[in-house]
Write a protein that binds this DNA or RNA. Sequence first.
DNA 1: CGTCCTTTGAAGTGC
DNA 2: GCACTTCAAAGGACG
Length: 566
Amino acid sequence: MPQLSGDGDDLGASDELIAFKDEGEQEEKRNVSAERDLDDVKSSLVNESETNSSSDSEADRRPKPHPDVESRARSSQLFEEALRRQDGGLFQPSPYMGYPFFMIPDLGNLCSPYLANGALTPSARTYLPFQWPLLDVPGRAVIRDSATPTHLSNSVPVVQHPHMTHLSPLLSYSPEAFSPQRASPGFSPDAGMSRTPHTACYPVSPGGMAQIPHPLGWLPGQPMYPIAGGFSPAALAMNASMSSLVSRSFSPRLVPTPQSSIPHPAIVSTAVKQEPGGSSQPGKPDPDMQQDKEDDRRSYVKKPLNAFMLYMREERPKVVAQCKVKESATINQILGQRWHSLKKEDQAKYYDMARKERLLHSELHPNWSARDNYGKKKKRKRKCDAQLEAAAAATTSAPAEDFLPQLKRPREETPLMHAPHTQTAHTRPHTVSHLTHTHLSQASPASSLDSPATPTTALASPAAPAATHTEHTHSSYGGHMSPDGEQLQPLSLTTKPHRTPLSRSTVTPGSSTPSSSSDTPTSSPYTAPSRGSPPPPPPPPFLVPPPTSAHGALMQAFSLRRTNQL
DNA sequence: CGTCCTTTGAAGTGC
DNA sequence: GCACTTCAAAGGACG
């Protein structure tokens, strides 16, 4: 949870983290200090978010059912006029505006706060903490943060402007809308994403455009998504960011009109869209069972996205286009590095987004708890339970208290369990630090090469295990900026063979998530190596020059991965 | 078809 | 309060 008490004053205080030098105990202390710094930085980001919208206190989590309709109507009208002026009706969304809250820091730059190269425009960089445009229209409810001064327009735009629904697929949480496969012909995995300003905007496939109703189709008199009853229209026009949150829980009440066979992008959830043909299709399972499953999924309220998830949603298409890779694991590694190299103010943007997501989520689902979603991966749990049961049954000769601890022991004693899994800003750098002490103690003084602009990269970069594994210096991986501004790609984004047993323990100690959720205590690959066991023979160091392009980086990463596999 | 991978962060549980 | 776990997204890979 964000630290509500922070004042954000320290935001700029500890921008720079202590880089690795790995000179023994003293350095270890320094790294501990760096951890604290990193923690402070992240906390300050959260605090900044909290401070910037000071209204978002716990008290404000309560819904405010009576917004100022008049001002919203005026704002909406102004906004629509601005849209028409700006784009002549052909509003172009940004590929980077994945965050569905239509963040428009400056109406003079309605298209995108980002430049074609992905950098924020100056206006966007100034980043007022969400000058939310009031996208709702009269008569539609909106959750307003009443404690926020009206002049800040800081109402939470849970109502997505219908115009936007067809303009930016990214506005929707629907993975389909986000999927690169739905990109326009201009998007070619081979050709990459055009860097021209217009095509840099996230494209909409022609098919998708054809499917999407006319932008004015939502206007009164044409009820695209009538309500079965008893549900606030606000949910219909819910900000698309919450569509995934809303749709699963509320979509049973959302009944498309017969004319509208295409679900509203803001309403379609992954659950719903997965059944395009309905249950009547031949070869499908029992309709009743399918209906039950569908109901289950619809009643499922997902967790709100955190800052990094929001960042990933925005940046993933960009990375996919640049690197021509669709494998999410690889992309996520890149995004993780980029996240760490992201400027503080840029990260703050996502922390703020995430905070508002949580706020909105709590307003929509006041009784929801993350615990509700626990056990979602039932099969895993069943497996674990089955193992425990089998263990208990198999130990009729041995007391259960002797056996069960054995099941737990690997997790408790496995050295990697400390590290990666907590995955907090507190522990991960420490882990990396520890590893680098071991493996990089004599590395080149790469820390001096660390860009001040990317202070956290070396310390917290998830590529650190790659450094461990490959024994290249940390200056050669992870989101560092070359002198000419080009982002240096990690030498080894992927450090282990795919789905290889023991891979996580042997190859990516220290950073990669042990995916505790996926490993039962008895089957965990972490049981194999212990803290005292000798590490696997390190692969030869990779002395690979920095790639000249993102694609080159990926090719390099794959090459290294193959090398590591061999 | 279900799960894993991979990332960070939030929130939960358990001690 | 700490350590650990689970789940958010994504889509290819794999059993």
